[in-house]
Write a protein that binds this DNA or RNA. Structure first.
Lengths: 196, 196
DNA sequence: CCTTTTGTTGGTCGATCGACCAACAAAAGG
DNA sequence: CCTTTTGTTGGTCGATCGACCAACAAAAGG
């Protein structure tokens, strides 16, 4: 079978979670291979052998991130009974996530690599694509049940995406969960005007 | 007087503007001293002799940035006849600024150094302080003429700061000036509900 | 037990980073 | 015209970056 050869001494899933922690804390360019090597408990050669490169490791980390930290807001958006309640619950779930005591206080999608050297441009493009996907998910949810008029779909999806991204920077700057609540209230206050 | 010694061959004001361009495009950590040296047309030793260090140069660059790119939104906030019109005009001026064809499409305050290596923590603190000052300016304007009730000051100032920061990421991701306009409309739609 | 396969160890590669130094250049002071 | 002062030139410093290699280790296959 595929079990020939010397067995791996590390657990790939665990190593990936450890890599996530470091990238989450320092961003893409702020994390070096020796940071990763130390956090994952394996030599850089093993990182290359299994994960490919720093960039490929980061892409796998972001997939894990989307499947874990990204899931509660996505679920809230999906499961809300009306578009309005779904968006409201998504904003709440986002605020919960980015003020969670065990994690850095921001969203990796938004702040892991907004600027940087020319050579890391592909990583920024990759994150920009993920953010674009986020806006499209919001738009699809607004359109799903027909309770938001068609001409309002683009403005509103962009507006609530802007809110999510702004919240992330608020949290990064030390805003607490209670301090984010009125921002969400403000953001939802516009709903009736917008959906008309 | 102070004109002893060999005269400087570069114009400090021009050099600072050139440094601003590079930092603006690549962020703090994404810009190297050789990038700066090339853009400013002087050797790194001269940068150290006149500006102190990379970090001190960056702080001077941010002062210039605040006095130039930061001025139109600040003026709009100051000169608006009512709090509502002032905030509205500030959001418009911000959107103008971050989609200006001659500059990178984002606000340096927000994206020049959101994450990074441990050793550059002071730079992130510095930018966080500037962002905090932005929120306080908005709060002071809301309070100035008494047309916003006191309990609404904190939520509203945080809310509109969130909008400004979210807009910056929208622009970074390619949103055009016309696409930002409905976001501003959405953000202002909540005003009457909030101020009540 | 030898061969094949796979993973790890320890080290190195060229490039680049921010910082700074010694030697030299160019002005004003006396 | 010599001294003092200030700025520039050309180069170097130790540290670190991402990437990768050769030698060795440890398993299964036959």
């Amino acid at each position: 079978m595929g079990t020939r050869g010397r067995p791996r001494t590390f657990d790939p899933d665990l190593a990936l979670r450890q890599a996530l922690d470091v990238f989450w804390e320092r961003g893409y360019e702020g994390t070096s291979l020796s940071d990763l090597s130390a956090a994952m408990g394996i030599r850089s050669a093993s990182i290359y052998a299994y994960f490919g490169s720093k960039e490929e490791l980061f892409r796998q980390v972001m997939a894990l991130y989307g499947a874990t930290a990204g899931e509660p807001p996505r679920r809230a958006l999906r499961d809300g009974p009306t578009a309005r309640e779904a968006v409201h619950a998504m904003l709440q779930a986002t605020a919960d996530q980015i003020t969670h005591p065990e994690h850095p206080h921001y969203c990796m999608l938004i702040l892991a690599a907004p600027t940087g050297t020319v050579q890391n441009h592909p990583v920024r493009e990759f994150l920009a694509d993920l953010r674009h996907g986020m806006r499209e998910e919001i738009r699809a949810r607004l359109a799903r049940d027909g309770d938001v008029p068609e001409p309002a779909l683009d403005p509103m999806s962009r507006y609530y995406t802007t809110i999510v991204q702004g919240l992330s920077i608020q949290a990064r700057d030390g805003a607490t969960r209670p301090e984010l609540e009125p921002v969400i209230t403000c953001a939802m206050a516009a709903w009736d005007t917008l959906a008309a």
